[in-house]
Simulated assay, not measured.
Amino acid sequence: MITTKDLRQLALSFPEATEEPHFEKTSFRVKKKIFATHDTNNNRLTIKLSEADQDLFSLIDKSMIYPVANKWGKQGWTIVELSKVSEEVLKDALATAYCEVAPKKLADMVRNEE
Rank of each mutant, 00 (worst) to 15 (best):
T4W: 07
D6P: 13
D6T: 09
L10I: 14
L10H: 07
L12M: 05
L12K: 02
S13T: 09
S13W: 08
S13Q: 11
A17V: 05
T18M: 05
E20R: 10
P21E: 06
F23G: 02
K25F: 09
T26P: 01
V30A: 02
V30Q: 00
I34G: 01
D39M: 05
N41M: 09
N43Q: 13
I47R: 00
L49H: 03
A52V: 14
A52I: 12
A52Q: 14
A52Y: 06
Q54E: 08
D55G: 11
D55S: 15
L56E: 12
F57L: 13
S58R: 04
L59D: 15
K62Q: 13
I65D: 02
I65K: 01
A69M: 12
A69Y: 10
W72F: 15
G76Y: 02
V80Q: 03
E81F: 01
V85N: 01
E87F: 12
E87R: 12
E88H: 11
K91T: 15
D92N: 15
D92R: 13
T96I: 09
Y98T: 07
Y98G: 10
Y98F: 08
C99W: 00
C99L: 02
E100C: 14
A102H: 06
P103L: 10
P103I: 09
A107I: 07
A107Q: 06
D108E: 15
R111K: 15
N112H: 11
E113A: 11
